[in-house]
Amino acid sequence: MERFFRLAATAILVFSLAPLVSHGSASSPERRMTAVPRLMLWAWERPEDMRFLDPERAGVAFLTGTARLTRGGLDFRPRLQPLRVSSRMKLVAVIRIETTPDALLDASQAGKIAAEIVRAGALPQVVAVQIDFDATQSERPFYRELLRELRKQLPAPTPISITALASWCMGDDWMTGLPIDEAVPMLFRMGVGQSEVSSWIGSGRDFRQAECRDSLGISTDEPWKVLPSGRRVYAFSPSPWTERSLASLHWEMHSWQ
């Protein structure tokens, strides 16, 4: 009997610790992400001159291109608008993914998108890649496949960040086990869900999904009175970034402390 309990205890211990062991390399997300500045400004598909930005204080996550998945395959449109940054600026290459209703979403498309993202990751001054894909339920298997393929193709030190709907972070566990280093909860344009998320956050609670607890995604035209401080912040501005809009952002972030 004693032996039975000892064996059982060992089995349970091994089983409960196995995820930590198998994700031992997942502990390196923290190490990979240290390359990414704590404040990142999103530069979307419009002319942006961000040379005013101090590279010691912030970085730029810029839309590198949009991958459109259709029945016929992949249509990739790279960034067509200028982006100007200082030569020391750390960059995150963002790829947005869109789909048509009849998109195949097969391994071939996953491989091609992964290749485009790898190429984006190799651009000068890029320290990480980020995928912006509001995958529906039916698209999640494809997204998982894409992320696995991407992790294989990307150099090991390159972090993978993804944007995440707030609902993914608040009780939907589909991101568990994804080979990502960061999921950025997008806390803007949430519609009715905004009050529920805000009361969750405002009550001192945190996102249920661990991947979502290291960063925040906000927009300058939807300021928050309270958000957890000390996390990496990605900020979107509905109009081109200026020193003034950056100053407003700093003021807002300061109020969270």
Binding site: E98, T99, T100, P101, D134, A135, T136, S138
Partner: peptide, 10 residues
């Protein structure tokens, strides 16, 4: 208002 693309589950 969830990252819509046309059709399917969306």
């Amino acid at each position: 208002d969830v990252g819509l693309t046309a059709g399917g589950d969306e």
